[in-house]
């Protein structure tokens, strides 16, 4: 196994509109490790994930993915290591099948197209009926969208999964199915954000973000 960490965050500092959201946050997550970020609303949990994806550029600090520094140049190929599942995934338009196939049209994923043959396997794993494939994605429930987003991430063979309250809309059975899946995959590194860390029982460590004012984290862009 590589000796570098899957995710290394060093003294991350982020502010929006003069309000400090993160002040010197650090985290090291080894390959295959699972951790959950907790904390009050506005403490910067989602912002950490957005920084890792390059959607928010920090005011200070550094992020390394698999040992490589996240920069404006490297972010484009580092995103191929990452998958992000939002609390309310915006999957675009079309049917569920369209949503699952779409990322394989991107140049970065073209050589992974054979993975689509495993859709049935993962649908079974995450307790999704196969009939869902033909449904319009806008008709799905929040819990179905979350599981479709997770299936998409797994099909894309991503090794670092970022879950943003990704089980918030799930029933206990579906939540357990997801937890069992991630627990069984020692090759996957998972950083999740949750108000209810007990729900994600596969997580090996809890990281509590300090304080933070109540309120929504802004939809800040890079």
């Amino acid at each position: 196994m590589d000796d570098h960490a899957a995710i290394e965050i060093d003294a991350l500092t982020v502010g929006f509109g003069g309000r400090a959201v993160l002040g010197g946050f650090s985290l090291r997550l080894g390959v295959g490790e699972k951790a959950t970020l907790t904390g009050r609303s506005g403490s910067g949990k989602t912002t950490v994930l957005r920084c890792i994806l390059g959607f928010v550029v920090p005011d200070a600090g550094a992020i390394r993915i698999n040992g490589e520094a996240l920069t404006a140049r490297s972010v484009w190929h580092l995103r191929r290591e990452l998958a992000y599942v939002a609390q309310e995934p915006e999957l675009g338009d079309g049917t569920v099948r369209d949503v699952l196939e779409r990322p394989f049209a991107y140049h970065a994923n073209a050589d992974l197209r054979d993975n689509l043959a495993r859709v049935d396997e993962f649908f079974g794993e995450f307790l999704l009926p196969r009939s869902l494939l033909g449904d319009d994605v806008t008709t799905l429930s929040a819990g179905e969208k979350q599981r479709v987003a997770i299936v998409s991430a797994v099909l894309l063979d991503r090794r670092i999964i970022l879950l943003d309250e990704a089980s918030s809309a799930l029933d206990k059975t579906s939540e357990k199915a997801i937890a069992d899946f991630f627990r069984s995959r020692a090759d996957l590194t998972v950083l999740s954000v949750s108000h209810n860390p007990e729900g994600l029982s596969f997580s090996g460590q809890l990281v509590e973000l300090p304080g933070g004012p109540n309120g929504e984290e802004p939809e800040g862009s890079a």
Binding site: L53, G54, F55, W76, R79, R80, L82, A83, Y84, A86, E88, P89, E90, L91, G92, D93, R102, P103, A105, Y106, H107, A108, N109, S152, L156, E219, S221
Partner: peptide
């Protein structure tokens, strides 16, 4: 308006010209 869907595409490995195509 659909910035989350746009970011979702980027997060899935799309280059800028691929993410803006729709």
């Amino acid at each position: 308006t659909s910035e989350k869907a746009f970011l979702h595409s980027l997060g899935q490995g799309a280059r800028l010209h691929e993410a803006v195509r729709p």
